[in-house]
Design a protein around this nucleic acid. Sequence first.
DNA 1: CGGCTCATTGATAACTCTCAACGCAGGTGG
DNA 2: CCACCTGCGTTGAGAGTTATCAATGAGCCG
Lengths: 232, 232
Amino acid sequence: MSSCDQCLVRNRAICSSLDSGEIAALNTIGRRRTLQAGESLIWEGEDSLLVANVIEGVLKLSTGTEDGREQIVGVVYPSEFIGRPFGGTTSHGVTALTDARVCVFNRTDFDAFAREHPALEHKLLERTLAELDRTRRWMLLLGRKSAGERVASFLLELAERLAPAHCEVQLMPAPRRFTLPFSRQQIADVLGLTIETVSRQFTRLKGEGLIDLPSRREVEIVDMAGLSAEAG
Amino acid sequence: MSSCDQCLVRNRAICSSLDSGEIAALNTIGRRRTLQAGESLIWEGEDSLLVANVIEGVLKLSTGTEDGREQIVGVVYPSEFIGRPFGGTTSHGVTALTDARVCVFNRTDFDAFAREHPALEHKLLERTLAELDRTRRWMLLLGRKSAGERVASFLLELAERLAPAHCEVQLMPAPRRFTLPFSRQQIADVLGLTIETVSRQFTRLKGEGLIDLPSRREVEIVDMAGLSAEAG
DNA sequence: CGGCTCATTGATAACTCTCAACGCAGGTGG
DNA sequence: CCACCTGCGTTGAGAGTTATCAATGAGCCG
């Protein structure tokens, strides 16, 4: 059963702009899909065939050069929107970092539905504007920050964005301790660094008592203020 | 006189989604403004008070760190939209690179107008999506490309985006020769490099016969294919 | 013709990358 | 239950690219 009624992100996704009748209509053109960690939903350069909402899990948006260098250009969390509506080819691939559940729509169907529902388009516009702001802030990191600043900024942003993942209504404070949805290589691909540099910065931050690393995939922020200072 | 009728970008700006009655209504809440090169229209971090369309000239969007490092996160050309509608504070400053003319709106007025005109919001959404794609492509450059690749990519993109600047209808091919709207420092701020590195790459590309530099502010692309190869 | 700003060029240093070895953890099979 | 294998992460040494610091050069305006 895949009704929107029990949807985990029902009140946070763009669907929240719709009344129950509209939700039912949207439900007829969407379908649920699960993805395993590492599985791709959309490939770079292909025609934009589908769009989706993330219900659960974390996905990456990435591009690369012909000679194999990769850059992660965005990370998508539950309730967020994926894909490129209104024509054009997708300029980046979409791949699950963790096991994930998404609600996918044929792009053409979604486009038509959206054009008939200005409230949905408005929500999409607000999200796209917010995502553009976030992406531009990330450019400062890529263009001007040192490796240490990049890693510190990364951990702080991650803590913040992981926070509301499982709370429906109230705002949760950023957790001090969390599980990384990224491998070291993926962190490097987000930050425009190499895996070795990321690893060295992790151990340095740990050595300075700003963070703790209970295991490969877990991080605890010990000194939030100190880490913020490192973030530049 | 500032009627939309003679507007240079009338058919390319988001206004093109409106009929003549709507244009007239929009005209009542907008006003023309000229900017000198170097003059700012919006400052980083302030509340979003106004939005605008660029009629003529080139503007930069930029952020910086507390200690003075700067990153240009976007460049805006005629017919393009500026500012952050629908709440929030502006995450980047907007400054004219050349003398410019813009059509500015009080943000609150514009928001209200836009919400009543879904076609306008749709156009804005399409542009925002396109800008997000472009920004993400730029992240690959900042995160993974060498200085030489960055400069070559920069010149190619600039040639392309400068092309339609003064032609209303038909598509013009990218010009081989053009005037830079940027100082060397500003190029460095776009590319995440220093002014010296930019300068060295310019002279190298010139030495290899890929470009010519008739003067500080002028560039001629001599070998387009070769430059594309350098762009990675 | 100065005096200014901006760009180029040079020498050196710093940072990050590259290449290589080692370590740790989880899974598999004996 | 332990040994081994494999994938991922860490650590080290050295090289390369870009930044930094400093001086010179070119264009522009008074």
